[in-house]
Computed example of a mutant assay.
Amino acid sequence: MIGRLLQFPRLLFLISILGIGQALFSQSASEITGQVIDVNSGEPVDFSSVAVLLKTDSSLITGVTTDLEGKFDLSISANEDYLLRISYLGYQTLYLTVTAAPEGVDLGEIELVEAAENLAEISVEAAALMFRSEIDKRTYDVENTIAADGGTAIQLLQTLPSIQVDEEGQINLRGSSNLLIYINGRPTNLTSDDTESILEQYPANAIKSVEVITNPAARFDAEGVGGIINIILNESELYGLNGQINVGAGTGNKLNTGLNLNYRSNGWNFSLGYNFQYRERWEYSESWRESFRGDVSPILDQEYDTENWDRTHLVRPAIEYQFNENTSLTFFSSINHRSRDRERLYQIRSLDASE
């Protein structure tokens, strides 16, 4: 009797071992393999996503990405039903039902189909090149650029390479002020001060392009000058009467207004442009001078307060007759009037060294 009781725990232990073995067998892993390829080309789809979902509730179990040959290999619990979700950008997502057998499942080649998308019509508009280089000149097409909005011709020139404009409005080409200003291929024959005034009046949006001519040809009659800046103005191609009004304002009491009218009919083109500019400028300077001569005040302190009011009017009439596509006769003029009022306050103090 006692011997049978001693054998009973051994029997329980053996039954437990068999139960654990059965549980481990039922939870054994199943290896799922396959290769993802393109249905049209047969090429492998590398780095595509393979996700394993539980079939009952679509919860994510595990997942891998395919290798360079489009192949994948993953292990999941055997004797279960799963969903394989295979996806890649530009392809339709594919779902496969898989029963994980203990001996494993080889899905072979899995074909993905490219996704067909209806794209909206795309309109591409090409803007003209801003810069063109030729043997004797460079042409900058500034029409419809940001620099042409709201500014003046002198401000537009400051944005172009090789051209510098100092604080006094003096224009330099590659460091030289010995240059000529042309408008529509014709010399202006103006002094530097008049050129500054006129270019300050021209609205930048009235300019189509700027030609920087560093090696003027003989037809320009520019011997001995450092170069030519040729400003090409916009010309209206509309028939009948048309016009444009420009108004601009800036800080420091600056105002620009302009009116452009154009009439074209039967080969004739009449145009009239008017621009007005008002600008206020303030200047302040101070100097301190100390002298060691006995016959003059040792210290001289000077202050200057200056205010300038500039008003400029520019009228540009033009008449053109177009004989044919390549020949035309044009009369063009620029009438400029500039006035300046100045008020300057001087404060001069002579001081002794003790003050």
Rank of each mutant, 00 (worst) to 15 (best):
K55I: 09
Q35I: 09
I348F: 05
V45D: 04
S77W: 04
V45E: 10
R186N: 12
I231P: 03
I15A: 13
T251S: 15
L173G: 10
D352T: 13
D73R: 15
Q322Y: 10
V50R: 01
T188N: 07
V212W: 01
W282E: 13
I335R: 00
T327Y: 07
T312Y: 07
I171C: 13
T33F: 01
I122T: 11
R85F: 08
E109I: 01
I20D: 06
E114Q: 09
I20P: 03
E114H: 04
N118H: 07
G34C: 02
L233I: 04
A29R: 03
L119E: 12
P44N: 07
L241M: 13
I348W: 05
S77R: 14
S75V: 09
F25S: 09
G169N: 13
Y274P: 02
D310N: 13
R344V: 11
A222N: 00
G240V: 06
I163A: 05
I20R: 03
A100R: 03
F13V: 15
V212A: 01
Q155F: 01
R85M: 14
M130R: 04
F323L: 12
L5G: 09
I228Y: 03
L238Y: 03
E223L: 07
Y346P: 00
Y91D: 10
S197R: 01
R219G: 02
D193H: 06
F276Q: 07
